[in-house]
Design a protein around this nucleic acid. Structure first.
Lengths: 206, 206
DNA sequence: GTCTATAGTTCGATAGAC
DNA sequence: GTCTATCGAACTATAGAC
């Protein structure tokens, strides 16, 4: 489930440019306008194609969304899951997450596409609903597992799950505030405050 | 700014039903589908009107959104700002917020309309963008003020603002997770964990 | 591989009858 | 106060020429 997922044989390399360009443009437009707010024609125009020209590469708008999400999710996963799995101290896990927060603070487009689409996905019949359900389930489970394995401060399952939900909520919630008011919200500072609270708590009994 | 805001003279009572019904239906549909995903016709149908019939009461879809947001914001504010302002201890403020979290956990529609529209509002040219910017600015400022005034543990401006951003982020971030997986996310439990972390920290030096 | 043309919807909003 | 009718625009997707 977490192993390599390069399914396509080799024809990816035959015409790599167009598909990649389209996915990049779709990423940008879904970020700027959401899925329902971005039109296929706008994506096509951004890569110098017509509506019909784009549909030569992707059979529907929904398929394009699927590819965009899978692509960006893969990159994010490589950037995060790799390291967070093995070295299981609470401190190390939080430091890795803080690095991700810092990285996000320099990539507004990436933050926005996930923030906008995740919230949009809770609406009726949204095509990304299963994607985000699965994504959160996976992230929650991974983080809870890492927290439970902390050698300095083992947590039972329930506590580690609650803590994982809390940490994820902080990251997501900061993003909305930051996207609306980047000058008033310092995501990394707020996350660092959470870290201090958690490491302070682990020094004590509770 | 917080005082009574009943501007309309008396003609509100002449035809109260229709407008209120429409606002209620619009609230539901914006919650279920977002602003861009919900059509005027769908709102109209829900109250037994046609598209044109609805536009007799609201001159545009955007005006309808404005009214829905103002109405719900007023209710939320009455439920929250009233109490959070005076009794300034950290503990009391957090307890009030936790009560709000518990209240939200029983009102999925209310949570969803704000979660979906807030995220949607970060997209280009969204009509609710200024509303949410203002709303967050106000909530941040109120909460930071309350935290700074805590008699047991005064915070400087910077620390109280960062803490306010963190607390708000927790509430918002939990909502997205909860809307997608209500059985796996206990918003009140996660918020209570944050409370324990904060009150633990206030016992120590930091 | 990309286009034009267009089918088939859906939408927001207006005009005007009743 | 609510309707029918309709306009004009935008949208997804298909068919078929080049």
């Amino acid at each position: 489930m977490a192993a390599g997922a390069d399914e396509q044989p080799t024809d990816r390399r035959e015409r790599p440019n167009r598909r990649a360009e389209i996915v990049q443009a779709a990423f940008e437009l879904f970020s700027e306008r959401g899925f329902r707010g971005a039109s296929l024609g706008a994506v096509a125009a951004r890569v110098g194609l017509t509506n019909a020209g784009l549909l030569h590469y992707f059979s529907s708008k929904e398929e394009l969304l699927t590819v965009v999400l899978a692509e960006r999710d893969r990159e994010t996963r490589e950037h995060a899951e790799r390291s967070a799995s093995e070295d299981g101290s609470l401190h190390a896990t939080l430091e890795q997450l803080r690095a991700m927060v810092a990285h996000n603070a320099e990539n507004a487009g990436l933050v926005q596409v996930f923030t906008v689409l995740a919230a949009e996905s809770v609406t009726d019949g949204h095509p990304a609903q299963e994607f985000f359900r699965g994504r959160y389930a996976r992230v929650r489970s991974n983080l809870a597992g890492a927290l439970a394995r902390d050698p300095d401060r083992p947590l039972d399952d329930d506590a580690s799950r609650t803590l994982a939900n809390l940490v994820i909520a902080v990251m997501d919630g900061l993003q909305v505030q930051w996207l609306l008011a980047p000058d008033e919200v310092d995501m990394e500072a707020a996350f660092a405050l959470l870290e201090r609270l958690l490491e302070g708590a682990s020094d004590r009994s509770a």
